[in-house]
């Protein structure tokens, strides 16, 4: 198990004694390869806090988080008994806004910034940059450009490349598609799915888009008011009654399937999770 949460609580300190409880009694495990996980829940439910524990940016108040065999605990971190950088190299976290991390004059320098911090020699870092820029769907000509003269979608890709260049086993993306139009979103989702499939990395995506969840995720985590209320596959999630209580939308494909079955009396043989699956399932029935 690459990451293991054991009864984790976390509270943001604030004015007054209360603070803000962000994680309550979270237990879960994540594997170091081959997972495609989506993390959903309302704003303020603790999603971002949860992923920031996964690369030790935040440290649990109680309970423990094991990351690649290193037990990340408050006392140990405070006394600097454990080194956090090896953890952050293994578990790459891309923040919601690329503006949070882009700062160099050129895209190349920005992408190599991470690897160089982890002690990778300049020459190797440049080679890696050349390969990751292609993975995120841009070409090498971008490397010499300024990261600030790019479109929103391109900036996002560069920021992802900057994390991929660290060659992490697990890639976590905090709302990577928010603000993009549908074409931009779909293209980027395809990039994530390729990273997951071709490089066999574990990918974790925070999203509000239920269509993404339903089409791509092998596993869904649902956060609600600091609790992890669901950890399982998307089909069971969206057919359960809880989705209304948790303020989750029904994915379009599921909604349409339900309508077709209800209004036209069609019964499909499979549970389609994308438009093309649904078409194939209909084809089978109608032919």
């Amino acid at each position: 198990m690459a990451i293991k949460f054991n009864r984790v609580d976390f509270k943001y300190k604030g004015e007054g004694k209360k603070g803000y409880l962000a994680l309550s009694n979270i237990s879960l495990s994540i594997q170091g390869e081959g997972e495609f996980i989506t993390l959903i829940g309302e704003t303020g439910s603790g999603k971002t806090t949860l992923v920031q524990h996964m690369n030790a940016l935040l440290v649990a108040d109680s309970g423990s988080v094991d990351i690649y065999g290193i037990k990340v605990e408050k006392e140990a971190v405070k006394k600097k008994k454990i080194r956090l950088n090896p953890i952050r190299k293994k578990v790459g976290l891309v923040f919601q806004f690329p503006e949070y991390q882009l700062f160099e004059e050129t895209v190349l320098k920005d992408i190599t910034f991470g690897p160089k911090n982890f002690g990778v020699p300049e020459k190797d870092a440049v080679e890696t940059a050349k390969s990751v820029i292609k993975i995120v769907g841009l070409d090498e000509s971008y490397l010499e450009r300024s990261p600030f003269n790019l479109s929103g979608g391109e900036k996002k890709r560069v920021s992802i490349a900057g994390i991929l260049a660290m060659e992490p086993d697990i890639l976590i993306l905090d709302e990577p598609t928010s603000g993009l139009d549908p074409l931009g979103r779909n293209a980027l989702l395809k990039v994530f799915f390729d990273i997951h499939q071709k490089l066999n990395k574990t990918v974790i995506i925070i999203t509000h888009d239920m269509n993404t969840v339903y089409e791509y995720a092998k596993r869904v985590l649902v956060m609600r008011d600091s609790y992890l209320v669901y950890d399982g596959d998307p089909v069971n999630l969206f057919t359960s009654k809880n989705i209304e209580n948790w303020n989750l939308d029904v994915p379009d494909v599921l909604d349409l399937t339900n309508k077709l079955e209800r209004d036209l009396g069609i019964s499909l043989k499979t549970r389609p999770r994308s438009a093309s699956d649904l078409t194939k399932a209909l084809e089978e029935v109608l032919r």
Binding site: R88, Y100, Q101
Partner: peptide, 13 residues
């Protein structure tokens, strides 16, 4: 704070 965390994710200590 978020920017610091984002850069810490890239190995800035």
């Amino acid at each position: 704070n978020k920017i610091m965390l984002a850069q810490a994710s890239r190995g800035v200590d």
